[in-house]
Design a protein around this nucleic acid. Structure first.
Length: 781
DNA sequence: AAAAAAG
């Protein structure tokens, strides 16, 4: 290998040189040649014809674009061949056959891995949600298996390549090294496809129920236009559920599973290759979480409108008295800057594009004008008149919690439409009629497709965190929703960061928008102090624990779901009470953890970027970024979780040696100048900055954690199944929050059909889930 | 070796 002779280009965190593959090696592994910077293949003369590019040091690099046509042809052939071959492989997998890899030299090493991951599913990849329920007969999780398989780095690398190949074969096109700017990485596409797969299977479910409206399907086919006749034809929804489907429905009802039974049938159809026991183990045992979230609108009545000051505050912005009084009743009297800027235009009916730094009152900046608009007239029919979209369920709930009292003060109703909650209240709300809909995209699209939701009466549509909603992954559902909203409706787009992605939405849906930007750098982010802690890799975990072991409330950010769960566990092992929050948990678990954090009983929250945006917890005095954010936008959003509403706050980013350069870029992009500190364990400087202290070292048991995060009384399964359980809810800590704004209540405890499981075993399974996300690979440090 | 959004 040529890299032994020259100085390595880069080093891994542990100081060993990074392996660079030669182009010959890359070709043998089925990769395209490097775009640049690769190790030159000595067997070829790249200098002829002057192709490639030359860098400032006079080194020439080969670029693929200018490379031999023949090479590309070869590569494409191989790729096609591989795709065909893989189609055969999938057949083999279904028959339980083991694959021999004809076209690469990887041989048996990855063979085991491959057949292992197939599980008879022809999808070949699985979502994180699936991992959750993915334990084999020995009780080992999929990741644990993987770990065995990739004892050496090579097979691990190949596992990833395998994923890429899957991508290729499914897409019919290469989508590998193109994500340089984060727009279409393989991983992104994969998760997107996964998402769409689930959508498709849900569509089938809808058809079983015969509920999917003809109208919406018509909309799918026609691009644009024809909005108005949709409503009229809605009731014509086809009812062609066959006998077969009817039986399924019956069966589903009998086993009390409702929707999830359709899911199971779907799954079973896809995959005939594995045995019954495994099937039931995976789906009936783990996959059937009905650990849901609940939400109730908060009432606000008996307003004293007479005391409203008509001169200043919100009144001066043109806000109706009733709303001013309602705001006053919730303790809000003087508008923030973004509100002053945006509300008048929004009330005037203009489309508004609003940017204001985190924690500066964006929710009311769009909430107040929305309310004002709703206040002007009665809802003519049952269709909702206002819609607010949010990227995460937690944020949606928070928005709904803020807006529902305002709405109720005017006799208007609000409904939260989000996943992880029961369908009943949501469909019912649409049937009964509702004024304001606060939603996450996924569930709303779901309800649109089943015909339960009708947005054709919407007069104001709001996108919160608009730039995030314009992201690749969200775009399809967001545009589906906005297409279902009348084109002449008012559109309000808000975020702390607006960028090019938003302009697509703006062009498509906004008419003559006004932009209001409140200086981002001088906002709340500036009231936080930013620190870069340069740390030694081997001290990272300990240092994280030490920093988190501080008096105030801390949010620790992790890059991945597993990372978050692992860090939370490491913290608890070190005696720091910490809970993980990420999208791989059940919604009930998410709600409980967040509630515990909001009430203050849980001092440390370890979260993925699910908590990066919008989540408003008052006295978070530190954001600790153990994993760096993906980009500077995310840095701003994450750090916006602290220093809210005039409080102080510190943002500490742990920087490993190899992250220095990228972190510098992030800081620069975010417009912050961090205090640079060489941080070591037990360091005085660290202790002073973070007000932290050495950890006790006394591990916190799972039971203690559960008692804090899931304080609902553990009833026997029988009691929970019956109505009695409901009577016992609401006494735990998490419901302390209830008095404030809505409920993060525990939701139903029932978890499927294993009747003989002990009640507290539920936590066992959550524990198992955590374990799996827990101490597996050492991929972060 | 992303996260999030339908179960």
């Amino acid at each position: 290998m040529s890299s032994s002779s020259s100085r390595p280009k880069s080093y891994k965190a542990d100081g060993t040189p990074k392996k660079r593959w030669t182009s010959a090696e890359r070709a043998a592994k089925g990769h395209k040649p490097r775009k640049g910077g690769g190790v030159r293949d000595k067997g070829r003369d790249y200098r002829d014809g002057g192709r490639g590019r030359t860098d400032s040091h006079g080194r020439t690099f080969q670029t693929w674009q200018s490379d031999d046509r023949q090479d590309r042809q070869d590569w494409n052939d191989r790729r096609r061949d591989g795709a065909d071959r893989r189609a055969d492989d999938r057949q083999d997998d279904r028959r339980g056959g083991r694959r021999d890899d004809r076209w690469s030299d990887r041989g048996g090493r990855s063979g085991g891995y491959r057949s292992d991951r197939g599980y008879g599913s022809d999808r070949g990849y699985r979502s994180d949600r699936d991992y959750r329920s993915d334990r084999d007969s020995r009780g080992r999780g999929r990741y644990e298996d993987r770990r065995d398989d990739r004892r050496d780095g090579d097979s691990r690398r190949e596992g990833w390549q395998e994923d890429h190949r899957q991508n290729k074969s499914r897409d019919g096109e290469w989508n590998g090294r193109r994500g340089g700017r984060g727009e279409s990485t393989g991983a992104n596409r994969r998760s997107q496809r996964d998402w769409e797969d689930r959508r498709r299977s849900r569509d089938r479910r809808s058809e079983y129920r015969g509920e999917r409206s003809e109208a919406f399907r018509g909309h799918d086919d026609s691009t644009g236009g024809g909005r108005d006749d949709r409503r009229g034809s809605r009731d014509l929804g086809d009812r062609r559920g066959s006998q077969d489907f009817g039986e399924r429905r019956e069966e589903g009802r009998r086993s009390g599973g409702g929707r999830r039974d359709y899911r199971q049938h779907d799954r079973r159809e896809h995959s005939e290759g594995y045995d019954r026991r495994e099937y039931s183990d995976r789906f009936e045992d783990h996959g059937s979480d009905s650990d849901q979230m609940e939400w109730h609108a908060e009432e606000l009545t008996d307003l004293d409108v007479s005391t409203v000051d008509h001169e200043g505050g919100f009144s001066a912005l043109g806000v109706p008295d009733r709303i001013v009084a309602a705001l006053k009743a919730t303790g809000i009297e003087s508008p923030f800057r973004i509100q002053i800027a945006a509300i008048p235009d929004a009330i005037a009916g203009r489309d508004v594009l609003g940017r204001a730094s985190t924690g500066s009152g964006k929710t009311l900046a769009f909430g107040v004008p929305v309310m004002s608009r709703l206040a002007t007239a009665e809802r003519p029919d049952r269709r909702p008149r206002a819609l607010v979209l949010s990227p995460t369920r937690e944020l949606a709930m928070q928005i709904a919690d803020v807006l529902s009292p305002l709405a109720s003060s005017m006799g208007l109703s609000t409904i939260l439409i989000a996943g992880g909650m029961g369908y009943g209240p949501q469909t019912k709300a649409f049937r009964k009629g509702v004024d304001l809909v606060v939603a996450t995209p996924g569930r709303l699209v779901d309800l649109l497709e089943t015909g339960d939701a009708d947005l054709s009466g919407v007069e104001v549509a709001v996108l919160d965190e608009a730039d995030h909603m314009a992201d690749m992954g969200f775009m399809p559902s967001v545009s589906a929703i906005l297409d279902a909203v009348p084109g002449q409706a008012q559109h309000l787009l808000f975020s702390a960061t607006l960028d090019d992605a938003v302009s697509k939405l703006v062009k498509r849906y906004l008419h003559d928008p006004v932009t209001h930007e409140i200086d981002p750098e001088r906002g709340s982010v500036a009231t936080a102090t930013h620190h870069a802690f340069h740390i030694k890799p081997h001290e990272k975990v300990q240092l994280m624990c030490e920093i988190a072991n501080r008096p105030g409330h801390t949010i620790v950010f992790a890059r991945t779901q597993r990372g978050a769960s692992r860090m939370a566990e490491q913290l608890r092992d070190a005696g720091v009470m910490a809970g993980a929050l990420h999208g791989g948990l059940t919604q009930g678990a998410r709600a409980r953890v967040l509630a515990a954090f909001k009430t203050g009983s849980l001092p440390v929250l370890v979260a993925t970027d699910v908590a990066a945006r919008g989540i408003d917890v008052d006295d978070v005095s530190m954001v600790l970024q153990v994993d760096p954010p993906m980009n500077s936008k995310d840095y701003l959003h994450r750090s916006g979780r602290t220093a809210r509403a005039g409080h102080d706050g510190a943002v500490v980013s742990l920087v490993l040696p190899h992250q220095r350069r990228s972190m510098t870029r992030l800081f620069h992009g975010a417009g912050v100048t961090p205090v640079q500190t060489q941080a070591h364990l037990g360091d005085e400087t660290v202790a002073r900055i973070a007000e932290c202290s050495p950890v006790s070292g006394e591990p916190i048991s799972q039971a203690d954690y559960d008692a804090l995060v899931a304080p609902r009384p553990q009833k026997s399964r029988k009691a929970r199944r019956g109505g009695q359980y409901d009577g016992h809810r609401g006494h735990g800590n998490s419901h302390g929050y209830r008095g404030g704004r809505g409920s993060y209540g525990g939701g139903r405890g029932g978890r499927g059909s294993h009747g003989d499981r002990r009640a507290d075993h539920d936590h066992g399974s959550r524990e198992g889930e955590q374990k799996k996300y827990g101490r597996s690979g050492n991929d972060t440090w």
